[in-house]
Design a binder for these strands. Structure first.
Length: 623
RNA sequence: GCCGGCGUAGCUCAGUGGUAGAGCAACUGAUUCGUAAUCAGUAGGUCGCGGGUUCAAAUCCCAUCGCCGGCUCCA
């Protein structure tokens, strides 16, 4: 903070207009004008860095002011926000808090009179400086001491504690005994080896950007939005369609499993007591909104919203397991800028979030297994391969060995198991499905966890058989992981195919365009129009005046599963010539083709084409 | 957030102090085509944004924003 102190015979100000950071509530504190005779005038500018410890800065600044006031023996003080003292200003939020804090500290001495000028307004002022040796002083104040850093201290201690957490790594294969991870032979699971190394050492090398970034743009799916904050993307029609399909698919799986779908607010009161506690551990990671003097944070998961609902619900043991589900449009995490990576890690993302209340550990384990099955089914639907990691607190693992064996056998592949010597997080068991990308980096998709802490913290209860209130166990599950990240994984998986010289492809049900009609010339327009009407899938029609070679090339570059060529021969024979991703050409009657397609849509959602059917009418979104 | 690299036409990029360029895309015209790029022409630029140095800045300097990589992080 910069502070300029002037001992004046007279001082007056009046508001002349509002700046872009004006807050109406400020005027209520100060009025639009003010005047005082014989006062110490403090011009103050809050600077970047002050927010680290507002209390400390306010205390020091107040100390300077009070001591000078007694030296020049005056009882009047003017607090005047004056941005021009610094070229590195703090946020308005911090500045206002500092001024408030200074004001209330000065007011402790009832003898003193404060004249305050509003923050965020243009003001005119008049001052007559006394001109004696103490009448003009400038100070720079920086935050010291631990007072408000308590929260950050807590965090770093929490992180320190996490680092001292002892882990043991073992591999468990279906139907086999555990093997220490170092001794496991990874030949058949190179992905699992990569996951283990990734988790253990954390060192990774890569020079190239992840390939999904180029793909997401070239395919006109998603793009950066320079007009927003980093890690907030724009979705073009084809990407939005894929996202919507993926969301519908996951939501259908979860609601069919018994998840009751709800919707909760995206922002919460920073001062809400139980939320505030929850936030303490991770104070630096929220988007914070200041609205009319109140602070809100944007949710980083659907947890709170659902906790608050569950807290208010009347639940008996008859209702358990009780499942609330939300597809969070959106969750927000203000990740450090260097941590953001394309669709893999965003600041704003969409995530399915299922919370299950379970009466006892047996019920929790049973649900855990069922939700594991659901996650496997989900990954299969997306065509994604994954590596399994399961993390346990050692004591829990010891008591529930058959449970672990069961999970591993459901996953049907060797799993990396991490065992902690003590419980550090809120959970005792956590299952993860990790996707290994083109750069051998791991990204967590599906997860299921058993939480033993939060129903107490949020006072979520059910009534048991004896009529007594009890805190249930809580399962957190994200069946697919973040939807954005699912798309990242799908694109990365295709980039791997390209690298191996194979043709990339989307799962048929997710392809933004499932079939494309390519007429040999515009003479066949009538025939094409007829076909368009008979195909109940996402089909478009390349009616542009370009050569057939070009049309085929572009359809291939868009990974369209079926290319339907229509020319004189086909019209004569009443069929279409079908070119598939494999490059095969087959003459087929339309009904044959439709019969071949049908099973690929089974159990999958369908939405219509999100762009014009005629390619000649399609605008270009990227390049 | 820290360290490093990058930012020029819608896209991919060339241009290191002296008149802003190419390919693709777009537009116009010709062409009516049989399975991964038909031919010709036209138009398109505050060189990320803001300062500075210089007779002169895309080019040098400072600051800032964004992207990528590494570290960190990933409740």
């Amino acid at each position: 903070m910069r502070i300029l102190l002037v001992h004046a015979d007279k001082f007056s100000f009046r508001v002349t207009g509002e700046t872009s950071v004006a807050l109406p509530a400020e005027l209520e504190k100060t009025g639009r004008q003010g005047e005082v005779n014989e006062a110490l005038v403090a011009f103050v500018a809050a600077e970047k860095g002050d927010e680290a410890n507002i209390a400390s800065v306010a205390e020091q600044a107040t100390g300077e002011i009070l001591s000078l006031m007694s030296q020049v023996s005056t009882n009047n003080v003017v607090l005047y926000p004056y941005a021009h003292l610094s070229s590195s200003l703090s946020s308005p939020r911090v500045a206002v808090r500092l001024l408030d804090e200074m004001c209330s500290r000065i007011q402790h001495n009832k003898q003193l009179k404060i004249l305050r000028a509003p923050f965020g307004y243009y003001k005119a002022f008049e001052i007559s400086c006394k001109g004696h040796p103490l009448s003009e002083l400038a100070k720079t104040i920086t935050p010291v001491g631990p007072a408000e850093e308590a929260a950050e201290e807590k965090e770093s201690q929490a992180l320190k504690a996490e680092k001292t957490l002892q882990s043991r790594w073992v591999i468990m294969s279906p139907g086999e005994a555990q093997v220490p991870a170092e001794k496991f032979s990874f030949e058949k699971r190179p992905g699992l080896s990569l996951l283990f190394r990734y988790e253990k050492s954390g060192s990774r090398l890569s020079e190239e950007p992840p390939p999904h970034i180029e793909l997401m743009r070239r395919m006109e799916l998603v793009d950066y939005e320079p007009g927003s904050d980093q890690g907030n993307f724009r979705w073009y029609p084809k990407g939005q369609l894929m996202k919507r399909l993926a969301e519908a698919y996951v939501s259908d799986l979860v609601t069919r499993h018994g998840g009751m779908q709800v919707e909760t607010p995206i922002m919460y009161d920073y001062q809400h007591p139980s939320l505030n506690l929850y936030l303490q551990r991770f104070p630096a990671r929220q988007y914070v909104l200041l609205s009319d003097q109140k602070e809100y944070f944007l949710r980083f998961a659907a947890c709170f919203g659902q906790y608050l609902i569950q807290h208010d619900m009347q639940i008996s043991y008859h209702h358990l397991p009780c499942k609330l589900y939300e597809l969070t449009h959106y969750s927000f995490r203000r990740e450090q800028s260097g941590e953001l990576a394309g669709l893999k890690r965003l600041r704003t993302f969409t995530m399915p979030d299922l919370h299950t209340l379970a009466g006892d550990i047996e019920q929790a384990k049973d649900e855990f297994i069922q939700q594991t099955d659901l996650a496997i089914q989900c990954m299969e639907g997306f065509g994604l391969d994954f590596e399994v990691a399961i993390r346990f607190v050692s004591d829990f693992a010891k008591d529930h060995e058959t449970f672990i064996e069961k999970i591993v056998s459901r996953c049907g592949r060797p799993a990396l198991i991490e065992l902690w010597d003590k419980r550090f997080f809120y959970f005792v068991a956590k299952l993860e499905f990790n996707f290994i990308d083109t750069q051998d980096k791991a990204a967590c998709l599906s997860t299921v966890q058993i939480d033993v802490e939060n129903t107490k913290r949020f006072d979520i209860t059910y009534v048991d058989r004896k009529g007594e209130k009890r805190h249930p166990l809580l399962l957190h599950a994200s069946i697919s992981g973040s939807i954005d990240r699912v798309l990242y994984a799908i694109l990365e998986a295709q980039a791997m195919r390209i690298k191996r010289g194979q043709k990339p492809a989307f799962p048929f049900w997710l392809a933004p365009v499932q079939l494309r009609l390519v007429p040999v010339s515009e003479k066949f327009d009538d025939a094409c129009q007829k076909i368009l009407k008979q195909v109940p899938y996402r089909i478009d029609y390349d009616d542009r005046d370009i050569t057939m070679g070009r049309k085929i090339r572009e359809a291939e570059r868009e990974w369209i599963p079926y290319i339907l060529v229509v020319g004189a021969k086909e019209v004569a024979e009443g069929c279409v010539n079908v070119r598939t991703r494999e490059g095969a050409q087959r003459k087929m009657v339309l009904s044959e083709l439709l019969a071949e397609i049908e099973p690929q849509m089974k159990g999958k959602p369908f939405f219509d084409l999100s762009v014009p059917k005629r390619l000649s009418r399609c605008p270009i979104f990227v390049g």
